[in-house]
Amino acid sequence: MLRLPKTRVAKPTTVAQAVALLVEHGEVAMPIAGGTDLLPNMKHGLFEPEVLVALGGIKELQRFELQTDGTLILGAGVSLDRIAADERVQRTAPALAQAAGLVAGPQLRRMGTLGGNVMLDTRCQWYNQTHFWRQALGYCLKKDGTVCHVVAGGKKCVAAASNDTAPTLMTLQATLVFEGRSGRREVAIDDLWHTDGIHNKKLGTDEILVEVRVPPRATGHRGAYGKLRERGSIDYPMLGVAARLDVGRDGAVEGADLVLVALQARPVRVRRAAELLIGVPSSGDNFAEAVAAVAEAAYAQAHPMPNIPGDHEWRREMVPVYVARTLHAAATGTGPVHHV
């Protein structure tokens, strides 16, 4: 039995009310959407907000539109289950639909929201534990302690960004719309992240994510998500791979992007993916060769650490495997890449 710490729940019905509550209570307040990340963390004593500002009753956060120019508007409060099952998302942004459909298990996807997934706390096997467990360990830098158990002598937390939708939204060049005390601001999702595992997002305590905007995709847009995890039914990623290919009329790749998650504190873009794939035909031997080169580049760049479960050397060996499979799945429209 894991009890929640005492807290009060406020139920605003507009974004403005929610922001006002966050401003009024300052540091001791936190927003809660589906609660599927925050409540387990609170039960583990990782957060003890005095006030929870519940976002579930706010209609503005439920927007879900595919506009005529192809822009996809996804309210932060839309459930992952709805995104995964939506034909418009499956058709126009397949990597996102696939990633949303592979988060946790079915009950959690009905409760968990897109906003909560983007805002997910980083994860570490020395951190996502009960208070009793962490106390026995002597705590760690991220919460209550002074040392890191992943990097000996490390002065910086390297807990892993573990949100499946984040890398897909990066390949889709999504914009995040926040509202806070000084009004609305838009941020490219690439610019959201810090490399610090304690707080991996640049965000004020008064800010709420209102919606995610995915700009129009190229005519030949293709995408896929690959996820390595222990149990296919429920677990967080041990590695997530999001791929985008823009294929021109002649069948050659005109644009490409590849972003990995569950390695370090922020999702990681494979720098050489685009330069190695552009101009290459999107099928046949040349494509397979280019994909193999991207997989090598990803292997060179990715250094999984013993921050999350799963042997980190094995996770590294899986990087080129999942990168190659996910790029092929994107090219052939056969994602997601997943073992069940």
């Binding site: 809660i32 599927t36 409540l39 959690l108 409760m111």
Partner: peptide
Amino acid sequence: CDKGDCGACTVQIDGEPQLACLAL
């Protein structure tokens, strides 16, 4: 588990199976 892993607490909320241990 009381933290979302096992599904033993599943109830239907508005007809949809959800986890009672993670619902306030």
